[in-house]
């Protein structure tokens, strides 16, 4: 059986199961209320995309910096990197957002909640990116560095021409996966009242009292973003496997 057929069958089975569940609870659908607020949902969707892309760029930069810190020979710099990575990965994003917004941002007089949201999200995701990048660099065998030195490359040339091109290929699937997490995690920005997709759905729900009609489009919207990324991640992974 071809893969697409298997996928289609499984999706249909799942849909049938959910449809069955809905028919059992006799849910009274009312899509017209939510339809009124479609503009709000679309806007929220747009904000989520923009926040996620901004945080992806931010977390990539922070991730590179943190990976360099963790890999540094200077023990102080290494400690800074390690503490950052462990602190962030060991605590809930919710807590980081609340502290970041109500304590840190207030203390420094940063009021734009979108900027704070992107910063906190970047710092959060950056810790995971740092581990991805470090793993990618560590996966390049020592013989590659030796070969690069043996042909007379400078350390910078060796990084640019030999190490990075291989490491980037190696980490791309994981980075795409991290982007998927980032998009879903951005929903937590609703707690500091950033008008992104999830907050929009919450508001539509409170206006219309149509809970499922408000949240089902939310699920569909996130899937619209994350499914292609997951597929991309898998394609990249497979392509790299064939290359080596």
């Amino acid at each position: 059986m071809p893969r697409w057929l298997a996928h289609t069958i499984v999706v249909i089975l799942f849909a049938a199961l959910i449809a069955l569940a809905f028919s059992r609870v006799n849910y009274a659908w009312n899509w017209s209320g939510v339809w009124e607020y479609r503009q709000k949902l679309l806007q929220g969707f747009g904000v989520t995309v923009a926040l996620s892309v901004a945080a992806l760029v931010g977390s990539t930069l922070i991730g590179i910096l943190a990976a360099l810190l963790v890999g540094s020979k200077n023990v102080l710099l290494e400690a800074v990197g390690r503490v950052y990575v462990e602190l962030i990965r060991g605590t809930p994003l919710l807590v980081q957002l609340l502290i970041g917004f109500y304590v840190v941002a207030s203390a420094v007089g940063l009021e734009n909640r979108y900027v704070v949201g992107v910063l906190v999200l970047s710092l959060f995701s950056g810790a995971y990116m740092a581990e991805i990048f470090r793993g990618g660099l560590a996966a390049i065998p020592q013989t590659q560095r030796d070969s690069a030195r043996a042909i007379g490359l400078t350390p910078w040339q060796s990084l640019r021409l030999v190490i990075l091109p291989q490491a980037v290929r190696l980490v791309l699937p994981a980075v795409a996966g991290q982007f998927v997490s980032l998009i879903k995690d951005s929903s937590l920005l609703s707690v500091i009242a950033v008008s992104e997709f999830t907050l929009a759905a919450q508001e539509v729900n409170s206006f219309t009292y149509s809970t499922l009609e408000s949240y089902l489009p939310l699920a569909a919207g996130y899937l619209l973003l994350t499914l292609p990324l997951s597929a991309l991640s898998r394609v990249l992974e497979r392509r790299f496997r064939y290359e080596t």
Binding site: T143, Q166, E243
Partner: peptide
Amino acid sequence: VGTVFQAYNLFPH
């Protein structure tokens, strides 16, 4: 000078 190791000398990319 030139150096060749046991394996993985070439850059795979």
